[in-house]
């Protein structure tokens, strides 16, 4: 469903953040991407939801070249991709409920659907009791669970998680990984980047290892090795 064809990305200064990357991600996969800081993991993810466009090569989403997407196509694309980040990126002036509802409102969903689906995903991440809290009133792990709930509420095809456990304690990390596995079991493709060896080893799923912008290893059921 996602296909990178010889993708290279230069940032200003001419250093290649991505260097001739070719890979395919199939529907329903749980893919982890590992590598040192600066190996190109985040750039690779940004290519998927078109925050960055390739300098060379092509990124396809469901056989469509993302570079040709217009504004409204991009908005639709981003509603098919849920995103989760290390720094949570919640809307600070909105409550937990409103943060999640916002993603549905922006997608033009009906009020009845919003009223039905938001409590459902909150239940999935076990935050039903905190739906009227503001993000600043939550712990890091709770905030990340809100971010995941927001990422999945529009029933996306893919969830892209960029170091979602980077700021969390081991127990919260475990909870987040369990939630991601649960979402994957429900059929959603997950693309995860992480520095956490324990997370990768406990998953036992496909691991792509990157170094200096290149894919150096791609194991079907890999371990964390750099």
């Amino acid at each position: 469903m996602i296909y990178f064809d010889k993708v290279t990305k230069f940032y200003n200064g001419g250093i290649a953040a991505l260097d001739d990357v070719t890979m395919t991600i199939e529907p329903g996969e749980f893919v982890s991407i590992v590598g040192h800081s600066g190996a190109g993991k985040s750039t690779l993810l940004k290519m998927i939801f078109a925050e960055e466009i390739p300098s060379e090569g092509t990124v396809y989403f469901e056989s469509n070249n993302i570079a040709y997407f217009g504004k409204s196509d991009l908005n639709k694309l981003r509603r098919k991709i849920g995103t989760v980040f290390q720094d949570f990126r919640l809307l600070s002036t909105k409550t937990v409920y409103e943060n999640i509802a916002f993603a549905m409102e922006a997608a033009g969903q009906r009020n009845e659907d919003i009223a039905a689906d938001v409590p459902h995903v909150l239940d999935l991440v076990d935050l039903s009791e905190k739906m009227d809290s503001f993000p600043r009133e939550l712990s890091g792990g709770e905030q990340q669970r809100v971010a995941i709930a927001r990422a999945i509420v529009n029933q996306p095809d893919v969830v892209v998680a960029d170091e979602p456990t980077g700021n969390l304690d081991p127990i919260s990390t475990y909870e987040i990984v369990q939630i991601l596995k649960k979402i994957n079991d429900l059929g959603t493709t997950i693309i995860l980047t992480t520095h956490n060896k324990g997370v990768i080893d406990s998953l036992g799923r496909r691991v792509i290892t990157m170094d200096e912008g290149r894919v150096v290893r791609d194991d079907k059921s890999g371990h964390y090795e750099l």
């Binding site: 504004k71 409102e105 922006a106 529009n154």
Partner: peptide
Amino acid sequence: TTKEEIGVMQLVGASDWY
């Protein structure tokens, strides 16, 4: 002060005018 959040809204798929 909300410029980060504007980016987040866009990432969630909100259109410019929204």
